[in-house]
C-alpha cells in the first residue's frame, strides 16, 4: 500500500529539567507552570537554578532578591544566591 501524506500537525512536548512534582518554594506553583504573574509557561517565565542547588521561578526569586531584607540570600539555605549565567 502506498500512502501519500498531504498534511500533518506536529505536536511537541516539553518540560523543565526539574522533578515533575516539584514546586517553586516561593509561589508554591509547579515549575512547569508559571509564576503567579505570568500566563504562559516556557522561556517567558523560566526557572533559575542557584549554585546552591535550589531552584525557583526567575520572577519569584527576583522579587525576593530585590527586597532589602533578603540580603541577597537564597530563601532555602540562606547562602548567597548565585546562579550560572547561560
Amino acid at each position: 500500500m502506498k500512502v501519500t501524506i498531504k498534511t500533518y500537525n506536529a505536536v511537541a512536548y516539553w518540560r523543565w529539567d526539574a522533578p515533575s512534582d516539584d514546586v517553586c518554594g516561593i509561589c508554591r506553583v509547579q515549575f512547569d507552570g508559571t509564576c503567579p504573574n505570568c500566563r504562559f509557561p516556557g522561556d517567558d517565565c523560566p526557572i533559575l537554578n542557584g549554585k546552591c542547588g535550589h531552584s525557583f521561578h526567575l520572577h519569584c526569586v527576583n522579587d525576593w532578591i530585590q527586597t532589602e531584607s533578603s540580603r541577597g540570600l537564597c530563601p532555602m539555605c540562606r547562602q548567597k544566591f548565585e546562579f550560572e549565567a547561560e
Binding site: 509564576c35 503567579p36 504573574n37
Partner: peptide, 11 residues
C-alpha cells in the same frame, strides 16, 4: 492576585 493563590494553597 498572586498572593491569594498561595494563601489558598496554604490553607
Amino acid at each position: 492576585m498572586a498572593t491569594k493563590r498561595r494563601i489558598l494553597k496554604e490553607l
